[in-house]
Design a protein around this nucleic acid. Structure first.
Lengths: 338, 338
DNA sequence: AAACGCAACGCAAACGTTTGCGTAAATCTA
DNA sequence: TAGATTTACGCAAACGTTTGCGTTGCGTTT
């Protein structure tokens, strides 16, 4: 453990005061070129690096931003994180990442932990069933915060989202445009934020095209994934009146649906067309390739960070309560058209 | 911005000294039950939370661990991160995550940045082409560090890895056991650490079974992925003497291989069997399902954190230079057996 | 030559904690 | 009950920075 040199070391070895050394390190005015040069040389010689912990403590600004997500291993989330990391690095912020595991209690714990560590701002994607966001409401005036993906409309802060409803609407409209009218949906329970939004888009697309809602075609579960997608699809295939299309609110559920449909001997998309949501890496691997909504995670992450950092550096702490929508687009593949 | 209460606030409102308050907060001895109770009540009333930044600065221990990975969005990596986060949280450490993007220069930058922020230890998976690990060598005696996945054998620190060579050996042995002898490999260039290890396993399996190496069956590229897997497989299919099996050092490359083979009309596994590496989510989606090596990311992440934290809390800073191997297993699916 | 201005630097407090040491009061010992 | 020990607390320094203010010394102005 070789000694780490600090300002004092440099100051003493040059017969200067700590303040002077500090000022040249931070490039503040009022220093002669000569001493500036001497200090910089000595600093390099002793290979000084500023103790960011001490600085952060002193000026109470850490240059760290905290992130809370339900889980890091979901493909979409990991892409958003990549966007966050790359953009944060450009603006020389570091990132502290935590998981809530869709547990509101844990989410609040993480939030407070990040606050205690003195992060300058927080990026959060809410837990799926996050209903009691009381703590967030209180906190929203105390720390810069931006929400992304799973957001709350009652917390005053900026939100980076896609237009879930419109995206789902377009997906279903596409199904209708290829002649389908008996369209089922695989979704989550009504406590899931994004699921409800997408469900609304589904309903609106049906209504706009004079298709009556068939309740048997609406399949919900608590925590959707590939396995649930299979199960719900099995239930659909047991109906006397089969659907001719399935809109799954998640790519993995769509993949599960496709696997079951294929096993049953029905043809995709002729008998049943399938569309997913997210454009994950599975979409081009499953056969037939999956028609889905492209959800630009990188861009979401990047804009979220940029809005947050802008807010951090804006001393006027008017909490702007705006919602930024990132454009999605429908990627048409063989699960809906040959 | 309501005022954040600190030890002084509590002390003054109770006519106590800051030291006393600090001692009860940290549950140190030498405090009467009565004042302990008074302080705790007041703390709760003013909802005091300790300023971790100040504490970290004072005792120069941050309870933060830094992580450097090539990229967070690779499935395997995101699972490792999940393991790291969950275990770190259990031991009340926070995690700062950074990406090197397989750029050694960036990797060193990130390393130094983490040091400057005063992390207590660093978890690192090296860049693919990391040859000049000089900075790590110097740093290894200054900060607790454990490497995982892509490690260096010359840096003195503990390493959490799988036995890449053995895993690859088993994969190829499996191909041989089902009667294949013309076994091709899709790998990366010789500067890729894991690729080289797996290639060695491939070579050994061939040698142990008296199969001569056919140089045309060894296909390399710089940065392997699904697309590269396709290209290399096309080259293989252009040979006059076709291979009867392909070992891809990555699931995504294996998927690319399968897609090309299917398109060519050849049967899997009868004509050409395919085995991948990692057991990613693609493995059960591609058809036929992919035989592959399960690489237990969660466990790797967890053990890496635990070793690191143990080392952090062991004041005797003997750098133990040990390698921990996490067991892998071959998952046999339809890409090799019907 | 006195007065002034400015450039260049030093002093010292402050950020919120932790902790070694000192000390008063309380308790115990004989 | 005097002395010894223990209990319970306070004092103040320290961690490495940043920064407002004060202080030199020099050159410039009348």
């Amino acid at each position: 453990m070789s000694k780490i040199t600090n300002l004092k070391d440099i100051a003493e070895s040059l017969n200067l005061s700590i303040s002077t050394v500090s000022r040249v390190i931070n490039d503040k005015p009022g220093i002669s070129k000569k001493t500036k040069k001497r200090v910089l040389e000595k600093a390099k010689q002793l290979n000084y690096t500023t103790n960011l912990m001490a600085r952060a403590f002193r000026i109470s600004k850490s240059n760290i931003i905290g992130v809370i997500v339900p889980t890091v291993s979901l493909y979409f989330t990991s892409i958003v994180l990549k966007g966050i990391l790359s953009e944060a690095e450009k603006r020389s912020y570091r990132v502290m990442i935590t998981e809530s595991n869709n547990d509101v209690k844990k989410e609040e714990e993480m939030f407070n932990a990040l606050l205690q560590f003195g992060v300058d701002g927080i990026l959060i994607s809410l837990s799926k069933n996050s209903t009691d966001t009381d703590y967030l409401f209180k906190a929203s005036s105390n720390i810069p915060m931006v929400m992304f993906d799973k957001v709350s409309s009652i917390i005053p802060c900026t939100r980076i989202v896609i237009n879930e409803e419109e995206a789902a609407y377009n997906a279903v409209k596409h199904l209708i445009s290829i002649g389908k009218r008996k369209i089922a949906i695989l979704k989550e329970s009504k406590y899931s934020y994004t699921s409800e939004k997408r469900y609304k888009g589904y309903l609106k697309a049906l209504a706009d095209n004079n298709i009556e809602l068939e309740h048997d075609y609406v399949k919900s579960c608590l925590d959707i994934n590939l396995e649930r997608g299979k199960e719900l699809t099995k239930e659909l295939l047991n109906l006397k009146n089969l659907p001719d299309a399935i809109f799954a609110i998640t790519d993995s559920a769509a993949v599960g649906a496709i696997q079951i449909i294929k096993k049953s001997g029905l043809r995709i998309p002729e008998d049943i067309a399938v569309v997913g949501f997210s454009n994950s890496s599975l979409a081009e691997v499953i056969e037939p390739n999956l028609t889905t909504i492209d959800q630009p995670g990188l861009q979401i992450g990047r804009t979220a960070v940029n809005f947050l950092i802008d807010k951090i550096n804006k001393s006027d702490s008017e909490i702007d309560n705006k919602t930024v929508e990132i454009k999605t687009k429908l990627i048409i593949r063989n699960s809906t058209v040959k």
